Structure formats: structure tokens, C-alpha cells
Simulated assay, not measured.
Amino acid sequence: MNSRPDPRVLLRLLGLLAPYRWRLALAALVLLVASGSVLLLGQGLRLMIDRGFMAADSAALGRTLGLMLAVVAVLAMASALRYYLVTWIGERLAADLRRRVFDHLLTLEPGFFESAQAPGQAAGEIVSRLTADTSVLQSLFGSSVSLALRNLLMLIGAVALMLLTQPWLSAIVLLGIPATVLPILWFGRRVRRL
């Protein structure tokens, strides 16, 4: 049996998100705002040290702290709104999928359930599809994708800021990443085979 995922199934699942495209767009927007806010905090800390503490300028320090508090407030609101939106979308997706599966079960002939001893058609399998599998999809679309996108955006932004701030030091750090990741991938494949 081939355990590779079928891309067509994923496209059909993405089709279920179509009614929520405006909420998805808003979630993507607040995701960008939250990721940008996290990156701005690092720059605010740099300004606080360079212009406030090092220059012994209490006015600049006060302005920088005020700006950092504003960025933290924006970060908190954007993160809360993103969490609410992706959780809501995940719940709606799971409910829609459960409703479609249940509606399909109602259209099946009684003979299907009487001969449910065939592999993949047992009553427990049907109930599992209706509850557990949709919960996994809810978790995937409700939080996992959002967290992966947030981390990817923050990685890209952090690398860009590193390169703008200190190119030589950034190059050394970026050269160290393959030296760390390649052994992890190699050992991971070996452990998976074992």
C-alpha cells in the first residue's frame, strides 16, 4: 500500500477553506504584523542600548522604551487575533468536513453497513474517520500551518535583518547552519530506517 499523500486530496481540502477566504486573508495580515513586531523588538533593543544606555541619553531611552511598549501592544493584539482566527477556521473546517462525511454516510445503502466487515469499512473505521481524522485536520489547519508560516516569516526576516546589520557575522552564522542541519538529517534518516 502506498502511504504517500495524494496532492488532489489536499487540493480538495483547500477547497473547503474557500468560504473563509476573507478570514484567512485577515489571519495572514495579522500574521505578517505579528512577525514584523517580533523582529522590530530586536531593533528596539538595539536602539535602546546604542542610543539610550551607551549615549547616556535619557530622552532617547524614554522614547525607545515607549516605542517598544507600543510594538509589544501591537504584537499582543495581532497574536491574539491570529490565534482566534486560525482556531475559528480550524473549528469550522472540521465541522464542515464532519457534516459532509455524515451526509455522505446517510446516502449509502444499508447493505454497505451490513457488509462492513471488509477492511476499511468497519463501523469503528467509519467513526474514526468522522471524529479523529477530522480533529487531526482541524489541528493542522487551525494551528500547525499558522505556526509554520509564522516561523518561516520570522526566519526570513531575521536573516534579512542579520545581513543588513552585520553581513560578515551573518555569513559566518549562515555557514554554520548546514553544518548543524546536515548531520541531523543524516542521523534522522538512519534512525527512521532502523
Rank of each mutant, 00 (worst) to 15 (best):
Y83K: 04
L185K: 11
T165Y: 15
S170T: 11
L108S: 04
Q117A: 12
S58N: 04
M77S: 13
W88R: 06
A76S: 13
Q117I: 02
L182W: 15
A132G: 09
L152V: 05
V173L: 05
A56Y: 11
E114F: 07
S144W: 13
L97D: 00
V136R: 14
G52V: 06
A73L: 11
M162G: 15
L26C: 00
L61I: 07
W186S: 04
A179N: 08
Q166T: 03
V145F: 06
L61G: 00
A18R: 13
L93C: 04
Y20V: 01
T165D: 08
M54H: 03
R4V: 12
A70D: 08
R92F: 08
A59K: 01
R129A: 10
L17D: 02
L93D: 00
V9Q: 09
S139I: 11
L14M: 12
L31Q: 03
L31T: 05
I177A: 14
D96L: 04
G66R: 06
M154A: 03
S135A: 15
F53T: 01
S128Y: 15
I49H: 10
S79M: 01
L85E: 06
L137P: 02
R12K: 12
G42H: 15
A160P: 02
P19R: 06
F187T: 12
Y20P: 01
T107Q: 15
L108A: 13
L169K: 01
L85A: 08
E125T: 02
R192W: 15
L175T: 14
L93A: 02
S135Q: 09
R193I: 03
R190V: 04
T180D: 04
L97G: 03
Y83F: 10
V86A: 01
V72R: 02
R46M: 06
L140R: 07
I126E: 06
L10F: 13
Y83L: 09
D96I: 00
R192A: 04
Q138D: 03
A78C: 07
V159L: 02
N2M: 10
V9Y: 04
M77I: 11
T64H: 01
G124H: 05
W22Q: 02
A179K: 14
I172W: 08
G120P: 11
L41P: 00
S146G: 12
V72M: 13
L39R: 08
T64Q: 09
R129L: 15
R192K: 12
L85G: 09
V191H: 13
F112I: 00
G66Q: 01
L140E: 03
V136E: 03
G44F: 14
A55K: 11
D50V: 13
G188M: 09
A94S: 13
L185A: 15
M68S: 06
R98Y: 09
F141W: 01
A27E: 00
A95M: 11
D96S: 06
